[in-house]
Design a protein around this nucleic acid. Structure first.
Lengths: 346, 346
DNA sequence: TTGTAAGCGTTATCAT
DNA sequence: ATGATAACGCTTACAA
């Protein structure tokens, strides 16, 4: 019933051994005689000692057993997207060998508590995209020698990246649409910057979110003048809203959406407006996920391997933690034609 | 270009002040003269010092700024369920004030790396359910004085819990079904234990997952002899599989599923078998989520406020961190009749 | 407003 | 196989 929690020295004293010996009993890094181990264990038991304090161990060893993942949106929103969950699975797989926990961080936390990215005990950080604001935190981490990996973003030349061939992939989809005779095409894009404001994009040079910019560029290489409507997040609801806007008035014959979820929403908007897909409107998505309940539609889309994306990021982190210098990787998307695109009907 | 990373003492020396003064400059906890602050900042800059090391700070202050959430399943699976994501949102909300990051842990990690629940630097832990195996980790945490909260589970009498009125709620749904004249009813339950084996439940006393047991009990209070088929996780696919089993051969007129996702799967199975819902088969769910793409069906279900569930857990953690002793809370579900249940047709 | 001093609890290194 | 010693980098009474 001591007022203070027992420490390893207490245990050592009780067991009649040195603190270092007691430590070794718990870490198992060095051989210890059975009798000594027994003594220490018994002492620990008697004192209610439950093993080394992770905080102290982490200070001493320099390892916290934690890898942070920084999201750019509310956790709930992020995880509503199967792309994210698959990525997390890949990440957990790759991180398995080092047995690290995953620390979820968002960049929109309460300002008063400060950016936990720089105040949390962590061994490495993985960023989902990167913006100007974030860049400073990244610098801090890097100067501390904490490995940083960016997924679909750019955080400086020496930060390893995991990328998708967004431009090429989106161009491929656009070319497919054009090959079907479509000329009057509209785009639905992901958020353009930290404000996540909805609306038509006036100046694509102002887009700070790389995924958005790249996919837009790919589409515009084929349809330079296609109007682009940005939404605030990748969800069916946002796609529905965007679809309503784009289908009001002078409607396009095809809509290229930057995610499957958005595409699904656009299809809903089309149905709502009494349009048939693909007869009256062709729609393409991006991601290649299974949108629950979209049947009987099978989206024409670009399949990305998000599991591999997460795994690549995890592997890069493990490599860096291991002192190696992983190269950036670019994963390629596969075009998959579904039944949501068809020839333009006059 | 020193080989060693700069510490706060280095900065202090460079600035010509004491380490404590330098520390205070960074923490801002005590007033410091402008000139001193400037000197320190400049020194920090010169040395490339980026602020206190979280590991050391955490040892000293005893706070890591991290709250762990322990999942009982693969992260990807867990987050595919809207109930989980809503809960995470509620949790983030409640944790906002203390600005803690969320550490994701699963209990099925690679054995070699040990249970990170007891080795990660964390201030509190939230468990989603609790089993025998977990109990020992919980004991360790509690003896360390680390606050633990359990959501829908039992980890000992002095661990605060956030509960749902599962028994009552499920009974209400069952009564509704009976009031429609159904007599031949089957149940689809969540996983029964750590093995997550699929199959009919022989002995409900062997169920170690509390949610499963409670909801089953509620249903059995109305239909004592209803066969119950357990699945391995809450997903549409699992519901589909269970539905196929239950609808083969001598089929029931109603199926009570322990989650909306499962119910959605059961409906798919019914459609597959050429059955109409609710004319040929009534189906109830649990959770009250929006199952994407289930339209035009609106599930008869029990609505739970999972946002509130997460918030309650977060608040309990904050209270405990604050030295208070939060009471367990039980949230109640609301019965909502949709169009997936109807009178039995002869 | 600033400095002194005393840890926080552990583990790595080196001797023995 | 075990022990002594010295960090790890920081914060916070308390004193000046």
């Amino acid at each position: 019933m001591s007022s203070r929690r027992a420490t390893i020295s207490d245990v050592a004293r009780e067991a009649g051994v040195s603190a270092s010996t007691a430590s070794v009993v718990f870490s198992g890094k060095v051989a210890v005689s059975d009798t000594t181990r027994a003594k220490v264990m018994q002492a620990a038991d008697a004192l209610g000692y439950t093993g080394p304090d992770p905080r102290a161990a982490s200070l001493r060893t320099g390892r916290a057993g934690v890898v942070a993942v920084l999201f750019r949106e509310r956790l709930g929103v992020a995880f509503r997207d199967p792309v994210t969950t698959a990525m997390m699975d890949g990440l957990t797989d790759a991180l398995g060998p080092i047995g690290a926990g995953i620390l979820l961080l968002t960049d929109e936390g309460p300002a008063e508590s400060g950016p936990t990215l720089t105040t949390a005990p962590l061994d490495a950080a993985i960023l989902l995209g990167c913006n100007e604001i974030l860049q400073s935190s990244v610098d801090v981490l890097r100067r501390r020698g904490i490995p940083v990996v960016v997924i679909e973003g750019d955080a400086g030349s020496d930060v390893p990246r995991v990328l998708l061939d967004n431009v090429d992939a989106q161009r491929a989809a656009a070319e497919h649409v054009r090959s079907l005779g479509h000329d009057d095409v509209a785009l639905v894009t992901l958020s353009t910057d930290a404000t996540r404001a909805r609306g038509f994009i006036d100046d694509s040079a102002l887009i700070t979110v790389e995924v958005t910019r790249d996919r837009l560029r790919g589409a515009r290489e084929v349809f330079p003048d296609a109007p682009a409507y940005a939404v605030s997040e990748s969800s069916i609801d946002e796609g529905l809203a965007a679809g309503r806007v784009l289908l009001a008035g002078d409607r396009p014959t095809a809509i290229i959406a930057q995610s499957d979820l958005l595409a699904a929403g656009v299809i809903r908007a089309a149905e709502e407006a009494g349009l048939r897909v693909p007869e009256d409107l062709s729609v393409t998505g991006f991601d290649g996920i299974t949108v629950d309940g979209l049947a009987p539609y099978a989206l024409t889309t670009l399949e990305q391997d998000s599991l591999a994306k997460g795994r690549a990021a995890g592997e890069a982190v493990v490599a860096m933690l291991d002192g190696r210098d992983p190269a950036s990787v670019t994963l390629t998307c596969t075009f998959r034609r579904g039944n949501t695109t068809g020839p333009v009907t006059v």
